[in-house]
Design a protein around this nucleic acid. Structure first.
Lengths: 194, 194
DNA sequence: CCATATATGTCAACATGACTGACATAAAAC
DNA sequence: GTTTTATGTCAGTCATGTTGACATATATGG
């Protein structure tokens, strides 16, 4: 009873540990999204807009299909928010070069500004948490979180790809290629889902 | 720390690391909730019902106010789902002893069965992730996640309390007291919020 | 005892973001 | 030249959140 786990019942402790993790995920995700939500409200946007802005910013030149695969929502749902974002000048569309049916998506300057404003918030929250928890904890955080994610979605977090995305640099015209490569695996599973 | 980051630009890597964490939270939370969502759909329920069932199960005898403070939604929103759960026999209400205005909430057998079914799913996902990541990683996971949570909500995860909840055992008639004690701090902040 | 505060419930209206189903168009592919 | 694919769109529904106003029962403090 003095310190931790002189335990009367290790199963109870394990139970408590799992329950705690469940609740921490709930509170962490809620707190993590609440500040951006407030910013978005100023623009008349919601969390759905944030997700679109985020992933378009992350994968410049992404196609609508790829975006749908990442978000795992219907095209009708995406259409509403994407339409607003394009209409209000946060996102630009341009036809694909090889396949002119595609509408490649990209942030405008205005979109990039909003993206920075929104993500900056979350980034600093994470950065603070990482700093306070220490490098070793960060490693464990990654490892556990990755294992919580469905196996079919873990491909998005391959060591190679993420680092590559950061080091290939420009992120401009080549973005489409990068996005296609990154989301290839995910596309299939999501496509089969709906 | 030794063999990682031979990197060309430590700022880029840090950027990538933060971005990766943001995305992992997104995917992890989505995958984490999707299976329970499917089960809930069979009952005509949604995620909101899950949250109510979960926290009532976790704090038997909890008051409506306390539940509102945890969920951080309006009483009108809660009323709808709570009304359904009571109406369909998943949750029971009884007047408070000291304060008869209160409606103390408790799961019925039926409610407990659903709670188990729902949470079992998430618990095994977390358990698997913990097992595959290792004890050290779990420690880091906890530390980081706790730091992501708003400071005012971290009180819910005091070492003492969680373990106490696990070791006090019975979780029956004494639940009301336990719940009141556990959520006391959180109540104020949320109460002042709306 | 009466006035006020608190715990809870309820009605009504609305916004967001998801869903399904059906249909349309342009371009690619075979 | 038919079929498939990428995308868009119309129309309706549902779940879950919101605000605002008001009702009721009980507690609490002069």
């Amino acid at each position: 009873m003095t310190d931790i786990k002189p335990g009367p019942n290790p199963l109870f402790l394990r139970e408590a540990e799992l329950r705690q993790a469940i609740e921490m995920l709930f509170f962490a995700y809620r707190d993590f999204t609440s500040e951006p939500d407030q910013i978005l409200a100023q623009y008349g946007f919601g969390r759905a807009h944030h997700r679109v802005i985020y992933f378009v910013g992350r994968h410049p030149g992404i196609t609508v299909s790829e975006l749908l695969a990442i978000l795992a929502i219907t095209k009708q749902s995406l259409s509403r928010v994407l339409g607003q974002l394009v209409g209000e000048g946060f996102i630009e569309q341009r036809p694909g070069e090889r396949d002119r049916r595609q509408r490649l998506l990209e942030l405008t300057d205005r979109g990039r500004a909003l993206e920075r404003r929104l993500t900056e918030n979350q980034r600093s929250r994470i950065a603070r948490a990482f700093r306070e928890a220490g490098a070793e904890a960060v490693e464990g955080f990654h490892r556990v979180l990755l294992n919580i994610i469905d196996e079919c979605n873990r491909g998005r977090f391959d060591r190679r790809e993420t680092l590559a995305a950061g080091t290939t640099g420009t992120e401009g015209a080549t973005g489409a290629e990068g996005a296609t490569g990154t989301e290839g695996a995910g596309l299939e599973s999501a496509a089969s889902r709906r």
